[in-house]
Computed example of a mutant assay.
Amino acid sequence: MTKATRNVQPVTANLGKAGSVELVPSRYAVRVGDVDVVLISDGILPLPTSTMSTNVSEADRNEWFDGRFLQRDMFDWALNIALVRSGERLILIDSGVGDGFEYFTRAGRSVMRLESAGIDLAAITDIVITHMHMDHVGGLNVDGVKSKLRPDVRIHVSAAEVEFWKSPDFSKTVMPEAVPPALRKAAAKFTELYSENIMQFDQTVEVATGVSARVTGGHTPGHCVVDVASNGEKLTFAGDAIFEVGFDHPEWQNGFEHDPDVAADVRIALLTDAAETGALLAAAHVAFPSIGHVARNGKGFRFVPVQWDY
């Protein structure tokens, strides 16, 4: 008998405070040494479960989703961004999906949630784009956002990523039919809007004291992760290098990976490093707030979420 499964729907309520409509928390902060890191939920992307594991059988995939009490056909994929303060620099990592995607009506909350947290977009000095997929640059493409940012905001994108999106190759991906055109459109709009602000880097760049971005490739050729290191403590925001199923099965490939073989190698290397060093890990598509440690678990790994501090 198949287990009863469900995708939990968002809860909204107005509990006496005018304008309060969200009962579910949408941001969580940790301190890494002297650096403040805030994870912010952009919302949820409903996607076919088949895209989560394109190189395994349907039976194996179903077994994993059944074990999570999740539906077998569609999966609610978390989408997170991060905000980092180091000294006088305020750094945004990715920007969410934005608007204009009728199939992603439960995401695109990043700008609203930044503003509701009292973050003036003009205070952001730097933006790191882990890669130029629409759910990472789309928030910057929303009408009116650019005018709220400071004119000299520095947007760090790897040179390989910028070059790739001039003529992107989708030959190794397994995406829903509507996605590649939307990805091309979002990347082109982002490049056009922010061409004067984009600061390309090769392999690594120090964005602020204790905050650096480094290219991993795999998910896209110029995909990067962001390392926060201060006073002997470390957190890595892994972007799209790691998905929830990847802890149990790091060799399982994702349909959104432009080079799935390299992406699997990158994922295993990141998880191995986190397990050996005890560093914190966060990611764009791990359930919010996505912050935790990684432990070895047989041939795979186990994600150990942080205990929430209230």
Rank of each mutant, 00 (worst) to 15 (best):
D94C: 00
I81N: 14
C224L: 15
R27F: 13
D248N: 15
A283C: 08
L183W: 08
R267E: 03
H133Y: 10
G100P: 04
V211D: 09
A123R: 10
L193V: 11
F164L: 01
V97R: 06
I127A: 00
Y194F: 14
T5G: 11
S167A: 08
Y310L: 13
H131M: 02
E257M: 15
P221W: 12
E63I: 08
N55H: 10
T2E: 06
P48A: 10
G218I: 00
V304G: 04
A264D: 03
M175H: 10
P168C: 06
L270D: 00
R109N: 01
A13G: 11
V294G: 05
R109S: 07
V211S: 09
I44R: 11
L47G: 04
H131K: 11
K166I: 01
T236L: 04
A229P: 04
G19R: 10
H249D: 05
D143W: 07
S167D: 14
D240A: 13
V137T: 06
Y28N: 06
L47N: 07
Q253Y: 14
M1W: 09
V286D: 05
P46M: 14
N141Q: 02
V157A: 00
E276W: 09
F104V: 03
V179R: 10
R150L: 07
R72C: 06
L90A: 00
D152F: 06
N55M: 12
N80I: 08
I291M: 08
Y103N: 13
G232R: 13
D261Y: 06
W252H: 11
E192T: 14
V304C: 15
L45W: 04
S53A: 15
L270T: 02
A78Q: 14
V8W: 15
K166C: 05
V145I: 15
V111D: 03
D265N: 02
N254C: 11
G222H: 13
D126K: 08
A117S: 13
R61I: 03
S50D: 02
A160M: 01
G87A: 01
S26R: 15
R113E: 01
A287I: 03
V179Q: 12
L45S: 02
D248E: 12
S20G: 11
K234W: 09
E161R: 03
R150E: 00
D42F: 05
A186R: 04
V153S: 06
V32M: 04
I44S: 14
E206M: 15
S110D: 14
V162A: 06
V225L: 11
V294Q: 08
M52V: 01
R296M: 01
A229H: 03
M52K: 07
L114A: 08
P260H: 02
Q9L: 12
T236N: 00
S26I: 12
F237L: 04
S230R: 07
V84G: 07
D152A: 10
I127G: 05
A275W: 12
L45T: 06
D259K: 05
S290I: 01
V266G: 02
F69G: 11
